[in-house]
Computed example of a mutant assay.
Amino acid sequence: MEMVVDSLIRSQALAGHDVTLVTRWKQASALRKVSPDYPVIALPPRPSGGSQAFLDVGSRWPVAAAVAFHQLRHRFDIWHAHWLYPTGWMAESVLRPLGVPLVMTAHGADVNVDEEASYGFRQFHKHDTRVRDMLKRPCWTTGVSPDICDVLHDLDAKNIRCIPNGISFEGITARKTDVFAIRKSLSVSEDTFLLLTAARNVRTKGLHHIVWILKALSRTNLKIVWIIVGQNVEGLKQQFHNEGLSEQVRLLPAISKDLHDPSLAPPSALIDLYRCSDLFVFPTHNEAFGLVALEAMAAGTATIASDIGGLRSFMRSGENSLLVPQGDESAFADAIISLLIDPKRRQRLADQGQKTAQRYAWSKVSDSYLTFYHEVISETLK
């Protein structure tokens, strides 16, 4: 989310617009330490919520009051709330009475629900009621994938526009990567296939499946090392050890974007991992969009992922990637083997994937939002 917002702001600034970020106290404090290229305003701090994710969002009124204050002070032409809920819900309560245009973007957890994984705000009746009540009023909403837009339609949202997330296609493709040096640093020989997954270690990302997929692959004569990079992935270490797979996996901590770098690209170290891998594999359970899969495709890496939600918006199985039934570890193993033993097919999917990713460059996504902003401002001020 933070990278998406940062990239969108920078894209709009490059197009000549004056953009200010209004964000939570903690994020604003961190950003000010690195002096970003755009103004940052802090919302008031709030006590931490309940121990269960999505359980509590706090009171809307301190945030709403701050939004009203900053609007009256700065006279912004339009506000763009990322997350329909709770962010949009808090801002809408004061911007609508003020007659100020507001666009709200649904990114996933604000409207999607996965009860099995305890995912999403709307699993709780209070939050679900608030979202539905707000969408009964005239609202301008966007979803980052057709899957999200379908949910918005089901909630009877008005004025829906489907605008995807973007990637820094030029930044990814321009990166020069020393593949040999990186593989050497990972202790991966030249005759070994390198697989990559980038995700946080939470249930919805499906990283627990990798243990069993890799176990199936170890029964073949293929030499494989699997890199898993992301927050808390070290928590998987014992599972791989128990299955005798420690030598075939590399668990790397999350790679943070350098906020001193004004480019829109993901961290250079992550781009290098994309580019030196033979396959990007993404066994996720729930994706509103799936940015890392699109970045891997932009890097020219053949990609295999779960056949779900937002991934279907840009992945076409057999054309620019392979899609596999969610949670089907055997199917993932079969798909991986099929591409590793067929380099021509792997390269064809990689080439087509890169052509697809080019359509999602941030400049194009930003233009779509700017067009929508003009429509919203025009309609709101009638």
Rank of each mutant, 00 (worst) to 15 (best):
I9F: 00
A13R: 10
A13T: 14
L21N: 00
V22P: 00
V22T: 05
S29P: 00
A30Y: 06
S48R: 12
Q52L: 15
A53C: 03
A53N: 07
L55V: 07
W61H: 12
V63I: 14
A64T: 09
L72P: 01
F76Y: 15
F76H: 15
H82R: 01
Y85E: 01
A91S: 11
H107Y: 02
H107E: 13
G108N: 01
A117V: 04
A117S: 12
Y119A: 01
F121I: 11
Q123H: 06
Q123K: 11
K126Y: 08
D128S: 10
V131C: 03
R132V: 11
G143A: 07
V144T: 01
P146I: 10
D147R: 00
D150Q: 15
L152T: 00
L155W: 02
R161Y: 03
C162S: 13
C162P: 04
P164R: 07
G166M: 07
I167R: 02
I167L: 14
F169G: 02
G171M: 02
G171H: 06
T173C: 11
R175V: 14
R175C: 12
K176C: 03
T177R: 00
T177W: 04
I182F: 00
I182K: 06
V188F: 02
D191Y: 00
T192D: 05
L194C: 08
L196C: 08
N201W: 03
N201Q: 06
G206C: 10
G206Y: 07
I210T: 15
L217M: 10
T220P: 10
L222K: 15
I224D: 12
I228K: 03
H241N: 03
E243D: 08
G244T: 13
Q248M: 12
L251R: 15
L252S: 04
L252H: 05
P253C: 08
S256T: 03
D261M: 11
L264C: 13
P266V: 10
P266Q: 11
R275M: 15
C276F: 09
L279R: 04
F280R: 09
V281W: 06
A288I: 02
A302F: 04
T303D: 09
T303K: 01
A305Y: 06
D307T: 13
E319F: 11
S321L: 10
L322P: 10
L322N: 01
L323F: 05
V324N: 05
D328M: 05
A333M: 08
A333L: 09
L340K: 12
D342C: 04
R346A: 02
Q347P: 00
A350Q: 03
D351A: 12
K355C: 03
A357K: 15
Y360Q: 07
S363W: 05
K364A: 13
F372D: 04
Y373T: 07
Y373F: 15
I377Y: 08
